[in-house]
Design a protein around this nucleic acid. Structure first.
Lengths: 194, 194
DNA sequence: GGTTAATGTTTCTGCTGTAAACATACGGGC
DNA sequence: GCCCGTATGTTTACAGCAGAAACATTAACC
């Protein structure tokens, strides 16, 4: 994946080749075993084999690197949700499937999921964000409500709240991270006013 | 509030009087203007007017102090919810009122609210916790379902998920922190399977 | 081939949590 | 009234952190 563009065969000296990508990749790996609070620029630099401050040639500060990781994370979430939705029959099942995927993604990548939402600059750009995950939420919701914009918006927010809350409470060990529980909560969530 | 138990009039020398309480109090104040990640033992010690390491006579480490703050926070949440529930007529309104209070508390005390759930040792002790907030959730839910334990549990989890998710998304600026929106989401949340 | 910009490294500052050794003062037993 | 143990402070020290500043190396282009 990391290839130096020039003819020289991966000269390991001084210039790295593509330090930025390498840092992001290392960051994603680190997030599998490291909590957000314990993420360290210096450690990442060590992992990549570069001096501590080299990072600052590619990111203005730590926050910027974290933001890049979060951005990559929200991408992966969208892809994962899309894959999950493709295997279901009706549209209501579709919607539920993306919700289940949301929670399962959170449980599978806890630190990454948290990171997505711990950027003060919302990387999940409110519900009008331009990422795949947000788009899917909008589309599925609109299809379920039949298109009425106000109802669609309400459904989006309510559905998002349920899965987000469930995910967070499970991540924070307030609820057991139980697959059956996810299904039960989502299946019995009737999101329409009577 | 801080009084030395002996006759000496608040001798500010060497022994503080009640450093533990003072630290907790200072911590709660600090949380009004400081994000969790930026909370510092040394700063708290400075605020109270004591050396940096004096803290360790009362708390084994930073985590323990944070836990104490979280514990106080969940207390306050319970009290706030109780007060909110007392002004409503029927039981369903009761339940909704505690939900609204949950979200409003989160918005009013963002860092404190986050702290409650950011302790790896769950201070909101799963849903069987012994704190007032958890007790209220259980009671209100049981009253609504008529007592059926399985249904009660489902309702608790679902209701908790909605309000927790809504609160988190608003805190993380993914949704506008709008009072009317809170009402709309909670009022239209029909939490029973058809 | 030499200049310039991009991308590295070293070195430094000030912050953090926390361990260890030492100082002070309170309270109870003689 | 003195004395000593224990609780509760302080000072000093260390390692790790984010980031600023000055300097080194390399690649790319004229």
């Amino acid at each position: 994946m990391i290839t130096v563009s020039t003819s020289k065969i991966a000269a390991r000296a001084y210039h790295h080749g593509d330090l930025r990508s390498a840092l992001v990749e290392a960051g994603l790996v680190a997030l599998k075993t490291t909590a957000i609070a314990d993420m360290s620029l210096r450690q990442l630099a060590r992992d990549v084999g570069v001096s501590a401050t080299a990072v600052y040639r590619h990111f203005p500060d730590k926050q910027a690197l974290m933001q890049a990781l979060a951005s990559e994370g929200i991408n992966q979430l969208g892809v994962f949700q899309k894959a999950a939705a493709e295997g279901s029959a009706d549209q209501a099942g579709d919607f539920a499937a993306t919700g289940r995927a949301y929670v399962r993604f959170a449980l599978a990548h806890p630190a990454l999921f948290r990171l997505i939402f711990s950027q003060s600059e919302p990387v999940g750009q409110t519900i009008f964000g331009d990422n795949l995950a947000a788009q899917m939420l909008q589309d599925k919701a609109a299809r379920v409500t039949g298109g009425d914009p106000e109802e669609t918006r309400r459904l989006m927010i309510q559905a998002w709240s349920v899965v987000h809350g469930l995910a967070m409470l499970m991540l924070d060990r307030q609820l057991p991270a139980d697959d059956a529980l996810i299904d039960r909560v989502i299946d019995s969530a009737t999101l329409f006013p009577r």
